[in-house]
Design a protein around this nucleic acid. Structure first.
Lengths: 192, 192
DNA sequence: TTACTTTCTTGAACTAGTTCAATGCACAGG
DNA sequence: CCTGTGCATTGAACTAGTTCAAGAAAGTAA
């Protein structure tokens, strides 16, 4: 049950059995059906969740009422609204399962408890956030500097399994382009 | 000399005098003239720098040879290429001073030393990276979801002092629009 | 002062991407 | 089995933003 998540945390810093036992006692395993919400706009996000199985999307609704997807999370990823989680402020985001999921949840309180009892986790979380930051910066750079076809090609290269699991218009939303335009890009690419 | 940077680190976690003395012994103060480079593409970034005085830009050059600015840093900000710094990989970025600057530099080695001798700094750096991540996420959301005039208005609201300190075409570059279009946006806004 | 460089503005022509509407397709629910 | 709903595709009209070129303004060096 804990193999995958243990491997994940051990990749950043190595933990003893008893440290991992403490960790296990502070995370909650839950299964969640497809199309359920882990978080809605206005709520305070009280979890960081590790995806053991399934697929989740993180999106917000802009002034014109359109959904804009900011992240997909699949197996071995974490998902949360870190701004809301850390500052205990109402979230602007929605987090919704796209498939039946198996998740581990870590609450704010339990995270603090974990850090108190196993300070080595400070380092783990710092390294995790750093990785997240550098991939977000990369995404920002691509978003600003690349054309739509390039963004699409980069996406399928970086996340080759996601297109098979989520509707195409969600990918368009993630890329910040219209679903119709993505369709046109794809037909053009397939003709080459 | 250390008042500002001490206030900065104490905002996240509170440190004793002797802990701060260790910190001070591991950071290097340097003054750098206008238009000098702290980092160039291809180099490995071996610093996280705190801006005591002055203004710095962080940019990369895209496939078409254009500069794209990803961050400005002014007083009380930190600047680095965190991907290059942590993974010791060649940077894709340039970091250049835009004014004469006073900076504190923390090297990779000294950071590790600091974390070893004062583990409380793990928490400080984690919280700092977390804040950085949530502001980068916010910027990503704005970049994807907002029109150019909105982005510009958001920018001057969030960073009201920067437009007076840097050329306008740098702001256009940061916003991901052409300098000409920003000029047109500004004349249109001023007519209203 | 002059001359040189960088910055900002403006207009005209262009293009990447949007919006809207219509069509066909696939598959899940009763 | 049919039927509805969500999804992908396509074309036509549109628009936000780019590119190019020229000129004005402002700062800097001599």
């Amino acid at each position: 049950m804990f193999e995958n998540i243990d491997a994940f945390v051990n990749r950043c810093a190595s933990f003893t059995e008893s440290e991992l036992d403490i960790f296990h006692s502070l995370i909650d395993f839950k299964t969640v059906h497809k199309k359920e919400y882990l978080l809605r706009e206005g709520q305070i996000c009280d979890f960081e969740a590790y995806v053991l199985k399934g697929c989740v999307r993180n999106y917000f609704i802009n002034e014109n009422g359109f959904e804009v997807i900011i992240q997909f999370a699949i197996e071995d990823w974490w998902i949360s609204d870190i701004a809301s989680f850390h500052e205990k402020t109402p979230s602007k985001l929605y987090i919704e399962t796209l498939e039946d999921c198996e998740l581990f949840f870590l609450s704010y309180e339990n995270k603090e408890e974990l850090l108190k009892r196993v300070p080595k986790f400070e380092r783990f979380f710092r390294l995790m956030v750093q990785k997240n930051l550098s991939s977000t910066q990369n995404r920002l750079i691509n978003t600003i500097a690349k054309s739509a076809p390039e963004k699409y090609l980069d996406f399928i290269k970086l996340y080759p399994t996601i297109p098979q699991r989520v509707p195409q218009h969600y990918i368009a939303s993630y890329l910040g382009i219209s679903a119709e335009f993505l369709s046109k890009i794809r037909t053009k690419l397939s003709k080459q």
